[in-house]
Every structure is written in structure tokens, then in C-alpha cells.
């Protein structure tokens, strides 16, 4: 399996990363060498092996249904690049 320039462009789009046109080709090369190395996993017979979903043998913690948070609209806006009236502001989204 080999990654080409178009694939890099496609996954960069999925990842919302602006990768300059001139970086696409070199990035494809870098990814290819990594994926070639990873190919060795293909040697292992994994039939019947369950995929790990958690490294711990622990039960998921459950929380009581109580309101313990909120009322912090001011704090939420402190780090916002743009906000108004406790809303986060982004360029107009067209649906």
C-alpha cells in the first residue's frame, strides 16, 4: 500500500490541516516509509485475538446524576479568540 500526494491531500483535508502544496510530496514519502515499516504487523496471525479496548481490568466508573457544574460562561470566554455576549464567534457557517 502506498500513500501518494492525493492521499496526503485528502487526509490533510479530513484532519483540517493546511499542508502547503510543496509539502505534499515529501510528506507522502515520509508517511510511506513509516507505513512500510508498519507493514511488519501483517506477519502476525491475529485470528481470534480480541482487540484491546482497555488495558485495565476495571469497571467503568459511574457518576451520580447531579448538577455539579456550569454557570461559568465568563471563564469559558477568557481564552476565546473571539466572543460576544457569551457566545463563541466563528466565521459565518453556511448550511
Amino acid at each position: 500500500m502506498s500513500v501518494d500526494k492525493d492521499t496526503v491531500r485528502r487526509i490533510a483535508k479530513l484532519a483540517r490541516l493546511a499542508v502547503p502544496e510543496t509539502r505534499l510530496e515529501p510528506m507522502a514519502g515520509e508517511l510511506n516509509s513509516i507505513f512500510q515499516w508498519v507493514e511488519m504487523l501483517g506477519e502476525v496471525n491475529v485470528e481470534g485475538v480480541p482487540a484491546m479496548t482497555s488495558v485495565e481490568a476495571q469497571k467503568l466508573k459511574w457518576r451520580e446524576d447531579k448538577v455539579t457544574d456550569g454557570g461559568r460562561a465568563d471563564e469559558l470566554m477568557i481564552n476565546a479568540p473571539e466572543s460576544t455576549d457569551h457566545f463563541f464567534v466563528v466565521p459565518k457557517v453556511v448550511e
Binding site: D69, G70, A73
Partner: peptide, 9 residues
């Protein structure tokens, strides 16, 4: 009110 029932999560 906007963003008043929001945790950092």
C-alpha cells in the same frame, strides 16, 4: 443563558 450550562468537558 448562552453557554451558562457548559462545563470545561
Amino acid at each position: 443563558e448562552p453557554n451558562n450550562q457548559v462545563s470545561f468537558i
